[in-house]
Design a binder for these strands. Structure first.
Lengths: 350, 350
DNA sequence: CTGAAAGCGCTAACAG
DNA sequence: CTGTTAGCGCTTTCAG
């Protein structure tokens, strides 16, 4: 790398002291106008940029906030990251993104990397595998602000941003019941994952409220992954009774299930109606288009970043909890009686 | 943030000098065994972590490589980033990801941010808008390693990783011609974008080689974006003659076009055969499934990172050029005569 | 109005 | 085997 201009360089060339240059650059009141001018000019000419590492060392801040997500390729995470980024940049922070790849081991090493890099705050959405929270306790011990979003942990003194998963699931089941479904299956993530469980509770309550009996072998918990979902659905389709409705806790799972259903020769939504979760853009491209619950990941990311910065300013602000609204977007995959009055491709129910 | 343990802290507690602690921690040969032990123990107990900022300041390296991509949500970029990340982490580097959002202004500010953060190297895939390269010249002037991938610039002394777009496009056209298409349309990105142009040249040559006349109003250049592509395709469908084949330089454009074709009431591939570019996972989920050119973005990312690190070690290694292979993945959208012998959902042609 | 000096956390000569 | 010193680039007292 070419020798960067430093305060020292500038000072020598101008025959003044380092501190004068420093002050001139920051428009300090008691610096001579002509001195200021000449400093400014030389700085521009030499393209001087203050050395961030020195600043950071001095300020004991890295001005970086770390992010850990399962995979940046999942639409909700790329959207959430964009939200975090927008807030962070505006506040003069950089972001450092890590992918856990749904692996606990990797997530632990992500945490260590971020801590070693002196991240000023850490924002996390859990890996599917994560059933052990020691690495997060470490963050807390170091008093580094910690915010969870989407896949959150409840019993840790940290902030959380997520949606009312219980209500969202209930609304999905209500909708399926309205479509005439009486045997509704549930495709969920690992059962120790809080949000998956909340969605299950909402599901169960939905069945109850609609006088539908819950059939235990229609409730499936698994790792996330389209292929796994497909296999699990294939099994469900062999069982008797066969489901006539399906609620999946992610669009990826719903898609895997749809593939299985099609291969099995059944029609969606006529034989089985399907509702997913996340409202991934791909939902609109499927045939049939997939009904799903939208949770506005961009807003979730923004909120998470805001809470993180708040903690940085004021340690008291630890442990905030924000609930964002969801909306069920109804599309072809769950609409057995096609509404004749609906002009657009989907209707939204808040 | 709680007071982090520093060398000073440890030294004071042990009643030795800072340098002794430093040396003990690095297993320096000439340090007493018992001293080492006690240092090691206290360090573990206090969870000492060397301060990265201090290290960086000293080494004049940030140990960070910067990445600028149009959008992390695009599958090829999230895959490429994963490739870069894997290489970088193994080499002890962190990555800093920026999104240009296809905007030149944003890209310029990304470059400034990364430069200000003292990125040790920068890896870029151009924004669609970018038709001015001054900001990259600035990187070069500072002698910061610069590597382009996928959307590259040719006439700048930097490294490049991309595929043989010309050949890839030719193979797509050859395939369409084999399917009996005689009026093949082209949906491209901005015409000043090098790779889009190369794909156009391959397209043109493909037509020529197959004795097909090029019809100028079947060649469209535009911003990237599904909606725009849909609109542009709607126009093409009104024209006479109407295309019976389509090659799009990205899957997003192909998808926009497919939506237009369906709405217009034509059948894919029977009336119009379609081939996209990138082999996004969504290709397999569409109806019909979309034929596309795969360019192995993960490998592209890895390669870009490797070239970047090489430049860091040795400035002479500037300006490497790597060409990765592509393969055309044939799916339903372009197979007019369904092969009876094909058991799987797609055939691959290298 | 400007300069000198100390210090952020760490390493690497240079001395013992 | 261990301590002292200087210095990475910058800000910030404290002295002029």
């Amino acid at each position: 790398m070419s020798e960067m201009a430093t305060l020292k360089t500038l000072a020598q060339q101008l025959g003044v002291s380092i501190s004068t240059v420093s002050r001139a650059l920051k428009n300090h009141p008691r610096i001579g106008l002509k001195t200021k001018k000449s400093v400014w000019e030389l700085a521009k000419k030499m393209d001087y940029q203050p050395n961030r590492m020195a600043l950071n060392l001095l300020g004991k801040r890295s001005n970086t906030i770390g992010i850990i997500v399962p995979k940046i390729g999942y639409n909700i995470y790329s959207m959430a990251i964009t939200g975090i980024e927008d807030v962070a940049i505006e506040a003069g922070f950089n972001i450092m993104i890590c992918q856990s790849n749904e692996s606990l081991t990797r997530e632990i090493s992500n945490v260590h990397d971020l801590l070693a890099s002196q991240a000023d705050g850490i924002i996390v959405s859990l890996a599917a595998e994560t059933n052990n929270y020691e690495h997060f306790v470490k963050i807390l011990q170091k008093e580094v602000p910690l915010v969870f979003f989407n896949r959150v942990i409840k019993n840790l003194p940290s902030s959380r941003v997520y949606v009312d998963n219980y209500q969202a699931a209930r609304s999905a089941v209500d909708h399926l019941a309205q479509q005439g479904c009486r045997k509704i299956a549930f495709l969920g993530g690992p059962d120790f994952l809080y949000i998956s469980n909340e969605r299950f509770l909402g599901f169960r309550e939905g069945l109850f409220a609609n006088d539908i009996e819950m059939c235990h072998d229609m409730v499936v918990h698994m790792e996330f992954g389209q292929e796994t979902a497909k296999q699990r659905m294939q099994v469900l389709l062999q069982n008797t009774p066969r489901p006539d409705g399906l609620f999946a806790v992610s669009d990826t799972l719903a898609i895997g299930a749809m593939l299985a259903i099609k291969e099995f020769g059944m029609k969606i939504p006529d034989d089985i109606a399907v509702v997913g979760f996340n409202n991934d853009p791909v939902c609109q491209l499927l045939s049939p288009t997939l009904s799903s619950i939208d949770q506005n990941p961009y807003a979730m990311g923004r909120m998470a970043a805001i809470l993180c910065l708040k903690q940085l300013d004021n340690l008291q602000e630890r442990e905030n909890e924000i609930n964002l609204p969801t909306k069920l977007v109804v599309r072809e995959s769950s609409e057995k009686f096609r509404s004749t009055s609906s002009p657009s491709d989907s209707r939204s129910v808040w």
